[in-house]
Design a protein around this nucleic acid. Structure first.
Lengths: 224, 224
DNA sequence: ATTACTATAGCTCGAGTAG
DNA sequence: TCTACTCGAGCTATAGTAA
């Protein structure tokens, strides 16, 4: 993983054009750009090169530097996050698949707590069926998409406390289930637990409406 | 100025939705998100708050956090830089004005050095008049725009050495002068000196072609 | 549960310098 | 010039703990 300082170093190189071309520079001039010492610039550049984020072609006059594909990926990741958070809108191309399984009925318990239920009814645009559909995501691309979901903007259901315990903030992301029924993915906003499970809510009892049973593959298409 | 660590903290808050809403969180959970200690999260958040990048509303259960306008500006700055460097294209709305003055003829000397001249003729799409037009930018918005220019993508004229001294990399940004003549702003890529001067090259002798003289206001519109 | 202080361990940075 | 090494000063993160 690239550290904040390394990342800003990459960004400076990008500003100088090193995304597309070999840029001629030196650790001294980079240090001036960054407002740090030549030694620090040298150390950071060495590290970036070692970790495969930049390529260097050095000679006695200075060096040519270019950001590698990996380096560009690091910049792009942050750019995507910024784009999402500064101009919140969801990409419509995100889809995720998972296998249906029977949970412990916890989802039903949670969403029917009054503090959640009222907000869900008000904010979702539909009155949810009082239960959740549990999908197990198994493919590796699915797991990646699962994590992407956590960054997406969504409908926020505020957390609350009933005196005994606290209920965390939820996020609902509108989605189309099996290309037929409009519902939402339900995420607990607080915990970014490396879960391979997604929970779906919808205005109808999905198992019946979609004629699906345990172990069936269910398709979830994120709506923009 | 916000440090790399602070900036990434802001980014994390943005991911949690603190750009638009008051997000309920705690230094403990932020620490987990960031992979640092609660103490560090506390210190960073205090600093961000002190510097006016976030607002906090604390209580004994946790706190509500929201990024301020200043904080959003910091995120947007980086976002803009990334957008420019990852998808290089110039905004067509940038214009800058400056007053014509007579320089020392250095511009003419530099651009006619063979190492530069050949590239200029090949890459610009026109054969430049062998001299530069010097404009003094005086307004504060003009100075800001002047700095913006340094980040824009442009036509790169590689630096070279004639054995005695080195000539730095130049960047040419196509522009329309006084809405009539197509030329280019010429920048020395290396130095981000806080200059209030911009130099223009064009295929014709601009003073004659535009009938302009010292102290006239000249308009430069950046071409996409 | 919180936030945040203090003290210290540990790391980072830059001056000096070599190659 | 250049890059990059060593090493000590100084800064930063964390453990412990208070409120």
């Amino acid at each position: 993983m690239v550290s904040p300082n390394q990342w800003f170093f990459l960004l400076k190189l990008a500003e100088l054009g090193a995304v597309e071309r070999w840029v001629f520079t030196s650790t001294t001039s980079l240090a001036m750009e960054l407002g740090c010492s030549q030694q620090t610039a040298s150390r950071l550049l060495r590290k970036l090169s070692l970790d495969g984020y930049v390529e260097r072609r050095m000679n006695f006059r200075g060096e040519h530097v270019k950001i590698t594909e990996n380096g560009i990926m690091e910049l792009r990741k942050i750019h995507d996050t910024l784009t999402l958070t500064l101009h919140p809108r969801r990409p419509s191309y995100l889809t995720i698949q998972g296998r249906l399984f029977t949970g412990l009925g916890e989802g039903a318990y949670y969403i029917t707590r009054e503090g959640y239920w009222k907000q869900l009814v008000n904010k979702l645009g539909f009155k949810p069926y009082p239960g959740t559909l549990n999908l197990k995501v198994s493919t590796s691309t699915g797991m990646v998409t699962r994590r992407e979901l956590e960054k997406l903007p969504g409908i926020i259901i505020d957390g609350f406390s009933d005196g005994q315990r606290t209920f965390g903030t939820l996020k609902c992301i509108p989605a189309l289930i099996n290309d037929k029924i409009r519902g939402a993915v339900l995420l607990i906003q607080r915990t970014h637990h490396n879960s391979s499970v997604i929970e779906i809510i919808a205005p109808v009892y999905l198992r019946e409406a979609l004629k699906i049973k345990d172990n069936d593959l269910v398709n979830v298409k994120i709506l923009p």
